[in-house]
Every structure is written in C-alpha cells, then in structure tokens.
Simulated assay, not measured.
Amino acid sequence: MPPLSLPLVVSTLRSAGCVFAEDEAELILATARTPDEATAMIARRVTGLPLEQVLGWAEFRGMRVAVEPGVFVPRRRTEFLVEQALALGSAASLIVDLCCGSGAVGAALAEALGALGTPGNAPELHAADIDPAAVRCARRNIAVYGGRAHEGDLFEALPDELRERVGILAANVPYVPTGDVALLPSEARDHEPRVALDGGLDGLDVLRRVTAEASGWLAPGGLLLVETSERQVAAAREAFLRGGLDVRLAVSAELGANVLIGTRPHGTRLTPR
C-alpha cells in the first residue's frame, strides 16, 4: 500500500461506502500510533466494523468511552436519557446502569453528578450486563469513578444490598423487535451482540422484566429511565404503571429519542422479602 495520506484514506473509505469518509479518515489517522496500525484500522473499517470499534473509543456526551470489538456502541440519542436523569435526579447518591454495554451511561452520569456534588462525595456507581465482553469493557470505563461492574441477567447481577436504595436506574434495554433485527444497518446487525439489540417479538420483553422488578430496587422517589421507540411508547407506559411506577414521557425530536421516566412514589410500601 502506498504511504498513507489523508486523501488516500478518504478515497479508500469512500469506496467502501463510508458516508462520512473525510471525518472518519481524520479520526483514524489521529488515533493510530503507527502507519501499520493505521493500515490495520482502515482494513477493519473497510470490512464494515463500526468506526467506534475500529478506533477503540466512542464519543459520548463529550467523553471518550472505550469500546471493544463485539460490544454495543453507545448512540448519540442516548445522551438525551442522561440529560433527563441529571435534570430530575441531581441529588442521587446511587446510580445503576443496567444493560450497561460499554458503561457509557453510568460513566456520563457519574462524571456529571460528581462535578455537581462536593469534592470527594461522588455517587456510588454500579453497572450490570449479561454479556461478559460488555462487563469487561464497562469495568474499564467506570473504574475511574469507583464503579463496580457485575455480570448477570438484569437484577440478578446486582448486590442485594442495593435494594430500595437506587436513586437513578438507567436501563438502556434492547428494544428492536425480533423481526426487525435483520433490517438494522450491517454495522449493528453483524458486529454488535444480538442480546443488546433483540427485545423479543414486540421489542418490549426486557423492558417488561425491568419494570416488573424496578420498584424493589428504587429508593422512594427514585427514577427508572428507559429508551424506547415512538411506536412502543403506549405499551411500554402500561408496563411502567403495572410495575407501580408513576410515569412520564420525554421526547427529543432532534435526536429521535423517546425516554420513559418512572418514579417510585414516596410512601409506597413493598412486600417484605
């Protein structure tokens, strides 16, 4: 291969169908430590690997979040979920990032809430995912905040000591209906774990499981935030209500984001364990 230059890399990426070839070429050349590494990164991108997995990081709410091959890449629209959590739960002292993937949501919340609080009084942070690769990646991203990453199926992964203490429960659950997974862009369909995408027949299987148990983990007034699609909002809202949560919808037309926010009402009593 001829010596690497920006025009050559742009041409190579454009030929492979990369829509934002110029931006991607600049990022690859800026990230690679050697010409050989740049060449290998370009080759991986040409095969369709998501840019973030090629680079080894994704930008999320102004942060660089480590993203390893085979781990779900955080979406920009999910920044809206973080913004809603910060607006409503700025006093939270315990955060859980459920279905955490790379741990981007938990890291962003811990970063922001730590900045809002007093020095040395950062919120306690836990993240959980069923995918071992995601847990390893999340552990890297939340370690700087003193966070702990747990492997397991939803709430089964969490320490029992967290029950009825969680101030913010961010659950970026998979919500693509099974029949629609094949319609996703190849970057997601072929390079991200299906468990992070497939939400069952109507896309709400995991959401229903989360809302059914969330009240037992939330502190009174604690928040559950879940992203979903516009067409799923009505059914998802019903799941929140069945779980004993007050619920409201927040929408960002700009980002195409729909976030349902459930609150455990003050004064509610849970069935003794």
Rank of each mutant, 00 (worst) to 15 (best):
F155S: 06
F155I: 00
F155H: 06
F155C: 00
E156H: 14
E156I: 00
E156F: 07
E156W: 06
E156V: 02
A157F: 00
A157K: 03
A157W: 00
A157Q: 08
A157C: 02
A157R: 06
A157G: 01
L158M: 04
L158K: 00
L158V: 09
L158D: 00
P159R: 01
P159F: 12
P159Q: 04
P159G: 11
D160S: 14
D160M: 13
D160I: 10
D160G: 10
D160N: 09
D160A: 14
E161T: 15
E161A: 14
E161H: 14
E161R: 15
E161I: 13
E161D: 14
L162S: 00
L162P: 02
L162W: 02
R163T: 10
R163I: 08
E164R: 12
E164K: 10
E164Q: 15
E164S: 14
E164V: 11
E164I: 04
E164T: 13
R165K: 15
R165H: 08
R165W: 11
V166K: 10
V166Q: 04
V166H: 06
G167K: 02
G167R: 03
G167F: 08
I168M: 06
I168F: 04
I168S: 01
L169E: 04
L169R: 07
L169C: 04
L169N: 01
A170E: 01
A170H: 02
A170F: 05
A170G: 03
A170Y: 01
A170P: 01
A171P: 07
A171Y: 04
A171W: 00
A171Q: 06
A171L: 04
N172R: 14
N172K: 10
V173K: 00
V173D: 03
V173A: 13
V173W: 05
P174T: 11
P174M: 07
P174F: 14
P174Q: 00
P174S: 05
P174A: 12
P174G: 08
Y175C: 01
Y175Q: 07
V176A: 03
V176S: 06
V176F: 10
V176Q: 03
V176K: 07
V176L: 10
P177W: 11
P177L: 04
P177C: 07
P177K: 11
P177S: 05
P177Q: 08
T178W: 02
T178N: 02
T178C: 07
T178H: 05
G179V: 12
G179C: 02
D180R: 15
D180Y: 09
V181D: 12
A182Q: 13
A182G: 07
A182I: 12
L183Q: 15
L183V: 07
L183R: 15
L183K: 15
L184R: 12
L184Q: 05
L184W: 08
P185A: 07
P185Y: 06
P185N: 09
P185V: 01
S186H: 13
S186C: 11
S186T: 14
E187R: 12
E187C: 12
E187L: 12
A188Q: 13
A188K: 04
R189L: 10
R189W: 12
R189P: 13
D190W: 13
D190C: 12
H191G: 01
H191N: 02
H191M: 04
H191L: 06
H191I: 05
H191K: 09
E192V: 10
E192H: 02
E192M: 13
E192P: 01
E192Y: 11
E192R: 04
P193D: 08
P193V: 07
P193T: 05
P193H: 08
